[in-house]
Computed example of a mutant assay.
Amino acid sequence: MGAKGWFIVKLLMFQGLFVSRPQEDFDFFYLVLQWPGAYCDTTRACCYPTSGKPAADFGIHGLWPNYKGGSWPSNCDPDSQFDRSQILDLVSSLKKNWPTLSCPSNEGFTFWEHEWEKHGTCSESVMDQHEYFENALKLKEKANLLQTLRNSGIVPDDGFYDLEEITKVIEGGIGFTPGIECNKDPELNDQLHQIYICVDTSGTEFIECPVLPRGRCPSTVQFSKF
């Protein structure tokens, strides 16, 4: 390559046009599952999806790459836009297991698009868009949270349950300690809202959490009806 060619290459590198974007690294995933009763039983607006009221079960909130230090990458690749054609075979399962509760009522594609572009694009080094959603669905099924809690008499009946017991029951079911997050209903009762389960960097296996989210739960929490 002549001097003129090298000059052009250097100019392109300087302008950021010749350098490929590096994949964002991360240490683990949080599989975040939310209880719809707690999401809806707040002052926040809640709308059922156009397919109707979701089943009374934990729904996927997201599969989020995280760092061991407690921070996380986000919006890693603006060029990797959500493409619904890549997940058409998963849509019926997504509607059931990853339903939207935001307003106005919609099919769910806006929710899934947000999760892919904010979180999924940071995991492209290990999975493409289809694998991202498929893995989350498989992990949710594997966790089987509601049945595990029911088997121990912890049911969504607006009753109050010991947080430590909830944690132990889930740990017994999945083999690892979960993170638990609560919110408040209009009467200021603390409700079981979200469960965080840690997943390895392949996005397929549960692991012990390198760091748990900061919980906002008292020793006793309400498991709201839905």
Rank of each mutant, 00 (worst) to 15 (best):
K96Y: 09
D162Q: 11
T148C: 06
F226H: 09
G175W: 14
C122P: 14
S80V: 07
G59T: 02
Y132L: 07
S20N: 15
D27G: 12
V169M: 06
T121A: 09
M1I: 05
S93R: 15
G52S: 05
I180A: 02
K118R: 14
S51K: 08
S85Q: 08
P65G: 03
S85E: 10
P65M: 08
T110N: 14
M127I: 12
V211H: 04
M1D: 11
S85P: 07
E205H: 14
F109P: 00
F82A: 00
K225T: 12
L94A: 01
S219E: 15
H114Y: 15
S92L: 07
R216P: 04
G62P: 08
V126P: 01
F160P: 00
D77F: 15
D79C: 07
K168S: 14
T177D: 08
N66S: 13
T201W: 05
P22G: 06
G70T: 02
T50G: 01
D89M: 01
C182L: 05
V126S: 09
R150C: 06
Y67T: 09
F14T: 13
I8Q: 06
P36M: 04
C76T: 05
S152P: 00
S85N: 12
E187H: 11
T220F: 08
D83H: 09
W112G: 02
H193E: 01
Y132M: 10
K95M: 13
P73H: 05
Y132V: 05
F7N: 08
V9W: 04
V221T: 05
G159W: 11
I87A: 00
F176V: 12
E164V: 08
D157I: 03
N66M: 07
H130I: 00
Q194Y: 00
F18I: 01
G120Y: 12
C46T: 02
P213I: 08
P99M: 11
K138D: 04
S224T: 13
Q23L: 13
E115K: 10
T50P: 02
V211W: 08
S85T: 14
V155H: 00
P49Q: 03
P36Y: 03
V91C: 00
D41A: 07
S152V: 00
E117H: 07
F29G: 02
S20P: 15
K4M: 14
C122R: 13
N66Y: 09
E164C: 06
Q81S: 12
L145H: 04
T220E: 14
F206S: 13
C103W: 09
C76W: 14
W64Y: 14
F7G: 11
Q81D: 04
Y132R: 10
N106G: 15
N66W: 03
C209S: 06
